[in-house]
Amino acid sequence: MTLDLSALVTAAFPTEPLPGTFWIDRVAAAGDIPGELANRFAQRRWTEVALGDWLMTGRPSTARRYLHPDAFRYYLPSLLVGVLQDVRYLDWALEALLPAGRRHRTDRTDWKEFWDGCSETQRDAIRSYLRQVRAMLGATAAPVEQHLLDELEMIWGRVR
């Protein structure tokens, strides 16, 4: 199932073109985290970015504060596929699929840019990812994972 899911995500997210804009305009690209993001992500295809690269840049919510929504969306599949190889970081993949902020508001500009940039094929791949992750976890899902999956179902729709 993991290989099929990896193949589905890989097919839905092309490696070309690289994102035209890497940083959010209002964020200065200086400091430790932006430096790590630039070193590990910039000008690399998403298939060349590993879970370890994500782990060195902080949680996905941190990367989202610096990366333009197009860049975040472009590199997202590397996290989704990477987590399939090491499910200890499943919460990272789930968190990356939520709008930023504690309330996960979908009416924010950055989320709308992220969402609108996703093709329907990509949205369907993410829905399949969520559906299969839920099935894979079954009754063993920790409460935090179950809560995240429930929130994601409301946001992404048609997950079950």
Rank of each mutant, 00 (worst) to 15 (best):
R59N: 10
L97K: 08
R88A: 09
G82M: 09
D53L: 05
D32L: 13
Y74C: 03
R44N: 08
L80P: 08
Q122R: 14
I126V: 15
C118H: 15
L97M: 14
P69V: 06
W54Q: 02
R64W: 07
R123A: 10
R103Y: 10
R105H: 11
S78I: 02
W46M: 01
R44E: 08
G52S: 12
Q43S: 12
L94D: 02
E36C: 04
E113L: 15
Q122F: 13
R73P: 00
A38G: 05
L37S: 07
S119D: 11
S78L: 07
A135N: 07
L37Y: 13
T109D: 10
P69D: 07
T57K: 00
R26I: 01
V81N: 05
P69I: 07
W115P: 03
G101M: 13
T47Y: 00
Y75A: 02
G82W: 10
E95Q: 14
P34M: 12
L80H: 07
G138M: 12
P77D: 01
G35F: 11
Y66E: 05
Y129N: 03
K112E: 11
A93R: 07
V81M: 05
P34T: 10
A29P: 13
L97F: 08
D116V: 01
S78R: 02
A28T: 10
W46H: 13
L79S: 03
G31L: 12
V27E: 15
R45N: 05
T109R: 12
L80T: 06
L94F: 03
W92D: 12
L67C: 03
R88H: 10
L94N: 08
D32G: 05
P34A: 09
H104E: 06
P77C: 01
L84A: 06
V81W: 03
P34L: 11
V49R: 07
T109S: 11
L79G: 02
A38P: 01
E120I: 11
N39L: 13
T106I: 13
Q43G: 08
L67H: 09
I126T: 06
Q43M: 04
T121K: 12
P99L: 05
D110I: 07
A50N: 04
R102M: 12
R108P: 00
A135Q: 14
L51H: 04
L137G: 04
L76Q: 07
D70C: 02
I33Y: 12
V133G: 01
W111N: 05
W115Q: 13
M136D: 09
H104M: 04
L97Q: 10
N39Q: 15
W46R: 02
V87M: 10
L80G: 04
T109I: 13
R45W: 02
N39G: 12
R26S: 14
T57R: 00
G31F: 13
P69K: 08
D53G: 07
E95T: 15
